[in-house]
Amino acid sequence: MNEYLFVYGTLLGGAPDPEVNRVVRSHCRDAGAASVAGRLYRFDWYPGLVPDREDPPRRVSGRLLRIQAPERCWPVLDAYEGYRPGAPDKSEFVRRRIVARREPEGEALEAWVYVYNGATGAGRPIVSWPSPGRCG
């Protein structure tokens, strides 16, 4: 079974951490454009996704990555995103499963995503992050 990660921000390419970029290039494969129900907020210099429960929901565009080596990817990506699996309440982001829709055909699939875990009042709503071009 394939394991996917939906990326929408700095993981689209050019993360400021060289180890993160190496892991994405080495152990993840671009699986195409997608979107998820949510809103983006700017926190300092990076975006954070908050799931949207409106009907119809707003959509955030990004890319799907197929994770080829989860045991090598998750520790590095979790640390970069400030996610502590053993202490999610103390994490800036949490990794959750979400329904992503491939673009443009709309096929739904389950993917992991890093969701902002704090108060949205600390950020500013943003319409979109830089273009979700090819990863890596």
Rank of each mutant, 00 (worst) to 15 (best):
W45D: 12
Y46I: 00
P47E: 03
P47Q: 02
P47F: 02
G48E: 03
G48R: 02
G48W: 02
G48C: 02
L49Y: 09
L49E: 12
L49A: 13
L49C: 11
V50R: 14
V50F: 07
P51C: 08
D52M: 09
D52R: 07
D52Q: 06
D52F: 05
R53C: 07
R53G: 10
R53Y: 11
R53T: 14
E54W: 02
E54L: 09
E54G: 13
D55V: 01
D55Y: 01
P56V: 00
P57W: 09
P57G: 10
R58Q: 14
R59N: 06
V60K: 10
V60M: 14
S61F: 08
S61Y: 12
S61V: 02
G62V: 04
G62M: 06
R63Y: 08
R63A: 03
L64K: 11
L64P: 03
L64Q: 09
L65M: 06
L65K: 13
L65G: 12
R66W: 09
R66P: 09
I67M: 13
I67W: 14
I67Y: 13
I67P: 08
A69T: 07
A69P: 12
A69G: 02
A69F: 02
P70F: 07
R72N: 05
R72T: 06
R72F: 10
R72L: 15
R72M: 11
R72Y: 03
C73A: 15
C73G: 03
C73P: 04
C73M: 15
P75Y: 03
P75I: 00
V76E: 10
V76G: 08
L77R: 08
L77E: 06
L77M: 13
D78R: 05
D78L: 14
